[in-house]
Write a protein that binds this DNA or RNA. Sequence first.
DNA 1: CTCAGTGTTCAGTG
DNA 2: TCACTGAACACTGA
Length: 264
Amino acid sequence: MPELPEVEAARRRAERELAGQRIEQVDVADDPVVYDQASPAAVREAVTGRVVTAARRKGKYLWLVLDRPPHPVFHFGMTGRLVIYASGTPAPKYCKLALTTSSGTCAALADPRRLGRIRLAQDPERQPPISLLGFDALNDLPSTSKLRTLLAPRRAPLKAVLLDQSFAAGVGNWVADEVLYQARLSPLRPANDLTDKELRTLRSALRSVVRHAVSVDADADQFPHTWLFHRRWDHRFGLSARGERLTRQTIGGRTTTWAPDRQR
DNA sequence: CTCAGTGTTCAGTG
DNA sequence: TCACTGAACACTGA
């Protein structure tokens, strides 16, 4: 379940469980799709015996900093997840990589749909694909005036621009819809056409949605009941928690749920 | 059986 | 060259 809040929750768990630990055993799946640039053997070779210094994140990318490069870099795709379990218990289904530490903790990347990726990087943040990302929507939110500059050349619908990782790294489909809903902005608005007030509202909604989701470790049950999130896939009512009529439309290549009477 | 999906990439268009 | 769109990727579950 991987947009920025879910990946940040995984990062915190990874850091808590792995930082300071030595990786004693590495099990890799023979999957050339998920291992598209570094082979499973190369990843095992790079990680085995290393000590994990930290877990870092930018946008939807997560990587482990080891005591010596290269470092493993992960993207969770649509269905990837980090699973922590005790050594001796079975690895999760669809496990692509499992790390066993000296303390007996195991950390695995599982991904049924195989859209996730496992790679190696000498300096993850300074080389593609991470170096090509825009600002991190949690840790590096620009000022309103900077946002205006970034949006100036963008005439595409706001929704499409919010999903563009080279603009706002970490924003995915549900975060974009939630932000637009809370900012009362139509996803169809040309991105370079906002008033100053609307831009401030957009920035504020982006900050509060991401911060709040991160503050509850992306546990959707703890999102406020007024959030669009809880209704976006509810086919029964087609209403927001506030009773607004909801509609669906493909915008920026993704299914967008929004409240046309609220979002202008 | 068909289709949509919390994502990224790349070919093609204007 | 840039901004943008839509299909491909691959698999599960409704």
